[in-house]
Amino acid sequence: MGELVFEASGLTKEFGEVTALRDVSLSLSGPSIIGLIGRNASGKTTLLRHIVGLQLPTRGQARTLGVATRNLRHEQLARIGVVPDAPTFIRWMSAGEQLRYLSTFYPRWDLERQSFLAGLLDLDLQADISGLSTGSAQKLAIVAALCPRPDLILLDEPVSNLDPIARDQFLRLLLEVVQEDHATIVISSHVLHDIESTVDWIVCLNNGTVAADAALDDLKDQYAEWRVLARTRDLPDRFADAFVVRQTVMEPRRARLVVRTAGADVRAFEHAHDADVEVAPLNLPGLFPILVDNGRH
């Protein structure tokens, strides 16, 4: 059992009439890489901002590194690295000046790592902030977040503006950071294919509530994809089996089903529908709609 880095209990956040988080209860432990997924406006950014104390709960409790987020002090904040969704910097500085400025606030700023990351991500430290592209600004934010060697790293859509090469390097880098620093990383992203190979725990938000909070492998074990091929007669328009979560009848004799593995019997299904079934594991993009639906129900 790792260190408990964040704990929320009945966390609710309201912005006027909009409820961004609704009675969220959650515990995040590390070291691990946690994928925070959800549809647009599901509350991912709001949750990340609560973890670092930038926003305060309307109701409920939130504790980060053992301290109520309202009372996070320098000691805890210096252990947290953040890559915001839209990083902003002091525009008149160069990228190198900005990093040097930020480094003066951290006791554990790693200049070797700064140099290494800048080279790895192909970030020009001489470039003016005002002239940086969106992707380069994101790279700068990543460097700024990782150089203090934080124990908790919050990444809000960090790969959305990275090119495929930089994205691949960055995701491999995360694994190294976890191994080297024993850090806990919370990564929010819509690029599910990319983070699937990196994360080991999934938190899925839907309409401000927690739709899933489980290990990725456990979630994958819970569901499977069945590719059904009828032997002699057409398949029904709709399968009434209780374990079928999602179904697509592609042709009269072919269908693709997503099933809950608990209670699903392949042999019995084949016999009942006079069909052959090929079982395949479900990947994260395939799981996502189901997790969101669970939250909706």
Binding site: A78, S94, A95, G96, E97, L99, R100, S103, T104, F105, Y106, P107, W109, L111, E112, Q114, S115, L125, Q126
Partner: peptide, 17 residues
């Protein structure tokens, strides 16, 4: 102000820690 693009050689004195 100062040298642009501080490299790893310039040690971080971290005066604002």
């Amino acid at each position: 102000r100062g040298r642009a693009g501080a490299g790893p050689q310039s040690a971080s004195r971290a005066p604002y820690v």
